[in-house]
Design a binder for these strands. Structure first.
Length: 588
RNA sequence: GGUCCCGUGGUGCAGUUUGGAGUGCACGCCGGCCUGUCAAGCCGGAGGUCGCGGGUUCAAAUCCCGUCGGGACCGCCA
C-alpha cells in the first residue's frame, strides 16, 4: 500500500516515486498551492498539492494515501525542525482512505493549549496519535524487550499463571469473579502471581519470570491503578545476594535505554537506618538532609510536647527567613497528615534561637541545640515528637517537602538504593505499644517471606525483633521493586502463620495447596517483583503511571473510554450466579 | 472513610474575592480570499443548561447547602 514511511524520507530519496499513507497533521492552504503535513508512526513529511480542488476538502486527521515524487525543497524553504525537512513530496494523486469528524481536542498539541487527562483518555486512540503520548508506549515496549533479553539470556522461563484464581487472605482486597458453573463460588483475580511462582519452584523450573498483570481493589492514586503490571521473577537455590545481583543487571539494562549508566553495586541501607536517617522505607537519596534523633537530648526536658517516646528533628536550610504565613503553612501541612502540628525553632543570623518553641526550652537545651541537629545560622529546625514510627514518618515527609521547597532535588539525577533487613512483622495496631498480644502481628512483606537465618529460632517468641530476608529497590524515593527469600520449610511457614494469628485449620483451608506442595522437597527459593508501571513512568519522565498504560482508568476505577464498569442485565446476573445464597456454614 | 483543588461554546483559560444583560482571550470549527507555507496569513460567521439539583436575592457563573465528575493528598494498598 505504501513504499516508504513518511518520517524516513531524506535528501537521498530525491527523485524517487513514492506512495505514502498517513494522517493530515496540519494543512496550510494558500489557494493554488497547499501543504499537508502527513503523519504516520514514523514521523511527518510535507506533501505539496498544486490542485486546489484536491487540497481544499482535506481536513485534520483525514487518513490519506498519496502517490508522488520526492523533491528537494526550494532554496531557503528547508524546515530544520523536521527530520524530513530537506525534502517534500509533490503529490500526483491523493486518495482519501477515511474522513475524520471534527476532533474533540486538537491532536497537534501546543504548549498554549494542553488538554486535560480525562478528555485525552476518553479518546485515547486520538491521544496516542500524538508522538509524545505514543512514545511512552513505545518506550514501554522497549523496556519489556530489554528485561526479557536479560532474563532469557540467563536461562529464565517465561510462564503465564492464572488470572482466575482463588481468593487468599493477602494484603489487599480482591477483585472477585462469579463462577457460573458453581453458583455462590467465586474466583479472585490475583494480587500477584506469588503463590504460583513458588509452586513453579517446587516444580523445578528453577528460573521463572512473567510480565504479570495484577489486581488489587483498593483506592487509587497517581501511581496506582486497579490493574497493574509487575515484572515477576523467582529463582531456586539462591541467596539474597543472587537475587539482588540479578535485579541490578536488569535495572542497568533498563536505564541504558534512557542513556543512564547505573554504577554498581547499588548501595544498600538497612530498613532501620533508612527509617532513622530518612524517616522512610523508600528514601529519596537525590539530596542530603538527614533526620536527627533528639530523644536523649530532651530526655529530661520540662517541655511537655517533647516528653515523648521519640523526639526527632530535621533542618530546613535557610528556613529561618520564611514568612509567618509560610511557617503557618507547615502547620497546615502537618495537620493534613494527621499530626498535631510541626514544632519549629528558627536560628537567626547570630545563632540566636527564635520561634514559639524556643522559649519553652531551658538555657542548656538551647545552647547545644543547633550543634546537636547540625543547624547553621539562618536555618529552621522542625521537630516531631510522639510514637516512634509515626514521628519518623512525619519527619521523613517533612524532609521530602524540604527537598522540594528548597529545590534541593536534581531532576536529572537517578539515586538507587536497596533497602534490606526489614522487620518480618509489624504490630497490627497503630500504636507503638509493644505489649500487644499474640496474633496482633502482620507480615510487613508477605506471609511467605523467610526470617533471616539468625532469626529462625526466635521469630515467633520475639516477633518484634525478627528481621525479614527481604529487599526493596528504591529509585528517587519510589519503591520500584521488592522481593524476598521465601520460606521453603513447611514447619517454618506454619510458625509464621501462627504469629499472624492464622490457625492451622485456616492456613490449611486458605493455603493448603502451597503447604501440601512444600511436603515434596521444596527447594530454597526467592525472587523479586518490579512495579513495571512505575519503572516505565520513571524512565518516561512522567509523574503518572497513566501515561505508560495504553488505556488507563480514572481515580474512581472507571475506564473513561469504554465506560466500564457498567451495569449488567438481569439475565446476565442470573446466569452468572451472583445472587446465589451461600450455605450457612461456608465461612466468610 | 477524611482533607484540599478544579468543573464556563469543541479545546485550554480569564471572569467568582466585592452578585448587576453569557462579557473576554487563545486555539479549533464553517464560509470567502490567497501560489512557498511549516502553530501560514487576512476578512467574515456559527457555536453556551456557566456540571447537576435546591436555597438566599429585585437580580446568581459569582453567595449558601447538597450532589455528580475529574485531579492531588491522608487512611488504605503484604
Amino acid at each position: 500500500m505504501r513504499t516508504h514511511r513518511n518520517g524516513d524520507l531524506r535528501a537521498d530519496h530525491v527523485g524517487r516515486e513514492v506512495a505514502l499513507c498517513g494522517w493530515v497533521a496540519r494543512r496550510r492552504d494558500h489557494g493554488g498551492v497547499a501543504f499537508i503535513d502527513l503523519r504516520d508512526a514514523s514521523g511527518v513529511v510535507q506533501v505539496v498539492i498544486h490542485d486546489e480542488a484536491v487540497a481544499h476538502p482535506l481536513r485534520s486527521e483525514f487518513c490519506l494515501r498519496i502517490e508522488g515524487t520526492v523533491r528537494r525543497r526550494p532554496e531557503g524553504n528547508d524546515n530544520p525542525n523536521l527530520a524530513t525537512g530537506q525534502v517534500e513530496v509533490e503529490a500526483a494523486s491523493v486518495e482519501v482512505l477515511s474522513e475524520s469528524a471534527v476532533l474533540p481536542f486538537p491532536i497537534e498539541e501546543h504548549e498554549a493549549t494542553p488538554v486535560t487527562d480525562e478528555v485525552r483518555y476518553r479518546h485515547r486512540y486520538l491521544d496516542l496519535r500524538r508522538p509524545g503520548s505514543a512514545a511512552a508506549l513505545r518506550l514501554r515496549s522497549d523496556v519489556n524487550q530489554a528485561a526479557r533479553s536479560v532474563l532469557l539470556a540467563e536461562g529464565f522461563v517465561e510462564v503465564e499463571t492464572p488470572t482466575l484464581t482463588r481468593s487468599t487472605p493477602e494484603g489487599a482486597r480482591d477483585f472477585v469473579v462469579p463462577a457460573r458453573l458453581q453458583p455462590g463460588s467465586w474466583y479472585a483475580l490475583p494480587q500477584s502471581p506469588q503463590l504460583f511462582k513458588q509452586l513453579l519452584m517446587v516444580a523445578g523450573l528453577e528460573r521463572y519470570f512473567q510480565i504479570a498483570r495484577c489486581y488489587r481493589d483498593e483506592d487509587f492514586r497517581a501511581d496506582r491503578q486497579p490493574e497493574f503490571t509487575q515484572l515477576d521473577i523467582e529463582m531456586s537455590f539462591v541467596v539474597e545476594d543472587d537475587v539482588i545481583a540479578l535485579g541490578e543487571r536488569i535495572v542497568v539494562a533498563l536505564w541504558r535505554l534512557v542513556g543512564h549508566e547505573i554504577a554498581l553495586p547499588i548501595p544498600r541501607i538497612t530498613y532501620a537506618d533508612a527509617m532513622r536517617r530518612y524517616g522512610s522505607d523508600k528514601p529519596d537519596l537525590r539530596f542530603g538532609v538527614e533526620l536527627v534523633d533528639c530523644t536523649d537530648y530532651f530526655a529530661h526536658t520540662t517541655f511537655r510536647v517533647f516528653q515523648a517516646a521519640h523526639v526527632g528533628a530535621v533542618v530546613m536550610p535557610g528556613g529561618a527567613s520564611q514568612t509567618r504565613k509560610q511557617l503557618d503553612g507547615w502547620q497546615d501541612w502537618a495537620k493534613a497528615r494527621g499530626a498535631k502540628g510541626l514544632a519549629y525553632v528558627l536560628v537567626d543570623g547570630d545563632g540566636e534561637l527564635g520561634g514559639p518553641v524556643a522559649k519553652n526550652l531551658t538555657d542548656a537545651e538551647r545552647d547545644g541545640l543547633a550543634a546537636h541537629v547540625g543547624a547553621a545560622p539562618g536555618d529552621a529546625i522542625f521537630f516531631g515528637a510522639g510514637p516512634v514510627r509515626s514521628t519518623l514518618a512525619l519527619l521523613g515527609a517533612a524532609r521530602n517537602e524540604i527537598g522540594r521547597r528548597c529545590d534541593l532535588i536534581d531532576d536529572d539525577a537517578w539515586a538507587f538504593t536497596w533497602v534490606v533487613d526489614a522487620p518480618l512483622f509489624e504490630p497490627t495496631s497503630e500504636t507503638d505499644d509493644v505489649a500487644v498480644g499474640a496474633g496482633a502481628w502482620t507480615a510487613v512483606h508477605h506471609a511467605f517471606t523467610s526470617p533471616k537465618p539468625e532469626c529462625l529460632d526466635t521469630f515467633d517468641t520475639d516477633p518484634g525483633s525478627a528481621l525479614a530476608y527481604a529487599y526493596d529497590i528504591v529509585c528517587n524515593g519510589n519503591e520500584i521493586g521488592g522481593g524476598s527469600i521465601r520460606i521453603h520449610q513447611r514447619d517454618v511457614q506454619a510458625r509464621v502463620f501462627e504469629v499472624m494469628g492464622l490457625g492451622e485449620a485456616e492456613a490449611e483451608e486458605k493455603f493448603g495447596f502451597l503447604l501440601e506442595a512444600f511436603r515434596y522437597g521444596a527447594p530454597p527459593h526467592g525472587g523479586i517483583a518490579f512495579g513495571w508501571d512505575r519503572v516505565c513512568a520513571l524512565l518516561a519522565g512522567t509523574p503518572s503511571i497513566r501515561e505508560v498504560i495504553a488505556f488507563p482508568k480514572t481515580g474512581g476505577g472507571m475506564d473513561p473510554l469504554t465506560g466500564a464498569p457498567a451495569p449488567i442485565t438481569a439475565g446476565q446476573r442470573k446466569e452468572a450466579g451472583i445472587d446465589a445464597v451461600p450455605e450457612a456454614d461456608s465461612g466468610a
